[in-house]
Computed example of a mutant assay.
Amino acid sequence: MTMSPSLPDPDRLPPARFALDRWTWRETAYLLANLPVAVVGFVYTVVVIGVGAGLSVTVIGLPLLVGGLQGARLLGGLERRRARWMLGVRVDEPSPLGRGHQDQGFFVRLWAGLKDPVGWRALLYGFIRLPWGVLTFAVTLVSLFVLWPVLPFIARGLTAVDRAMVRGLLSPSDELERRIAELESDRGVVVDTAAADLRRIERDLHDGAQAR
């Protein structure tokens, strides 16, 4: 049985040094790939927002936007895997969308998809990555051929920002999701209680009218 190589703790990467070790080459490859990946993410984000907002007044606009957010989730997952393999960043996968809404109506599921924080953060990630991708590609390319003695330090500094972006925008918000679920559950209990009280009052009024 082949064991996959274990990744180091993202907070305990080997220190950058003048020698060009395997981590330097991994980080350099990651930075050079930032530009094409960022272009794909930016184009996808613009198309999703443009089409979803433009067609939001029609029947298909909001479902298309929800589908776009689902696609953004998938792109975010690919970015998490890329960062995990090339940068050693360990970020948990977010909870699946629709948990707790499977047995509810279409509009409830649609609303849950529209307010999906994971999808929106993934779109934001795709939007802001383009200028950063252009910058890191240019700096890394120049460093690779001109400033190669200090390339390990430049690569480590640039990828530190990438690591922060992945952790900040592509990590799950389980605590937030848990609080939202609790609030929705509490709201459901309040609504059910209010409906039961209203039915009881109507019944009492009806019985009182009949007694008179």
Rank of each mutant, 00 (worst) to 15 (best):
residue 1 M to F: 11
residue 7 L to D: 00
residue 9 D to S: 11
residue 13 L to T: 09
residue 18 F to Y: 09
residue 20 L to F: 15
residue 23 W to C: 07
residue 24 T to I: 01
residue 28 T to H: 02
residue 32 L to V: 12
residue 33 A to M: 10
residue 37 V to L: 13
residue 46 V to Q: 06
residue 47 V to S: 08
residue 47 V to G: 02
residue 55 L to Y: 01
residue 55 L to Q: 07
residue 58 T to D: 14
residue 61 G to R: 06
residue 61 G to C: 04
residue 62 L to I: 05
residue 65 L to W: 00
residue 66 V to K: 01
residue 80 R to D: 02
residue 86 M to D: 08
residue 87 L to S: 15
residue 93 E to Q: 10
residue 102 Q to T: 04
residue 103 D to F: 06
residue 104 Q to S: 07
residue 106 F to D: 04
residue 107 F to A: 08
residue 108 V to W: 04
residue 110 L to S: 08
residue 114 L to G: 02
residue 116 D to K: 00
residue 118 V to S: 05
residue 122 A to M: 15
residue 125 Y to A: 01
residue 129 R to V: 02
residue 133 G to I: 03
residue 140 T to N: 12
residue 143 S to R: 10
residue 145 F to G: 08
residue 146 V to S: 12
residue 148 W to L: 06
residue 148 W to E: 04
residue 149 P to W: 14
residue 154 I to R: 00
residue 158 L to W: 00
residue 160 A to W: 13
residue 162 D to H: 01
residue 163 R to F: 04
residue 163 R to K: 14
residue 169 L to I: 03
residue 170 L to Y: 00
residue 170 L to M: 02
residue 176 L to D: 12
residue 178 R to N: 15
residue 179 R to P: 11
residue 185 S to A: 13
residue 188 G to I: 04
residue 188 G to A: 09
residue 189 V to T: 13
residue 191 V to S: 14
residue 192 D to Q: 12
residue 195 A to G: 06
residue 196 A to C: 01
residue 199 R to V: 15
residue 200 R to A: 14
residue 201 I to A: 10
residue 203 R to V: 07
residue 208 G to F: 09
residue 211 A to D: 03
